[in-house]
Amino acid sequence: MIRSSVGNAFARLHGAAGSVSVPSLPAAPGAQTGIEISDVSHRFGDTEVLRDITLSLTEKRIAIVGANGSGKSTFSRLLNGLLVPDTGSVLIDGLCTAKAAKAVRRKVGFVFQNPDTQIVFPTVEEDVAFGLKGLGLSAPERAARVSDVLARYGLEPLRERPAHKLSGGQKQLLALAGVLITNPDYVVFDEPTTLLDLRNARLVGRVIEALTQTAIVVTHDLPLIDAFERVLVFEGGRIVADDEPSSALANYIRRMR
């Protein structure tokens, strides 16, 4: 009700026909059928970082754990086309990451470990708005979405603040807001809590918990993924365990000894 009246107000102000829906974005093509990974291998120079991975992901909460250098970070970069595998294919809702990079990136948001390198604009507001460029939205639609997402993550009072003046937790929230503003169907997190103190790590944990989207989380933070549906354990570029958390994590901890 409130949303539609806001939309009508915009429509009246800007003389647009019909109502402008504030929260929704044009959806990327393809129904949500999940992630299909077939026969993926990848190497950097002489080292094979991923070997023969075949896997289908349809759960809403998926965690990826493994030692440093086990290939989990590389794997996560396959999911939104940041990396195209040497062999094999990655399909997101039927879209191939190698052929439809643009559509895939709109479907799959990516939150990096270090918000300092993910925030690329000088002020909070500009940075959040960056993801909306090139989506064909009108200026009032963009402004409405920016305000919406800033309010949702408690960043509204910081709107005009230079990004480098934010605290670590605020930076991570800004990084999240910048990704979630485009309403992706999937969100990949690469160690989202590694650089945070306990309080901020819990805050990010709650944000992930509250997402309506599919979340795929690479992490060393085991409490974060307690309630997840599925855990993949990586070792030497392969998946060595794939199970619900309690047994997968027990397996992982045994391997770490």
Partner: peptide, 21 residues
């Protein structure tokens, strides 16, 4: 490198002709 990855990941463009507005 990380920053460039982040821009690519967020821009939704194959070749970002950034700020088309």
């Amino acid at each position: 490198e990380d920053i460039a990855d982040a821009i690519d990941a967020r821009s939704g463009h194959d070749d970002p002709s950034l700020r088309p507005h």
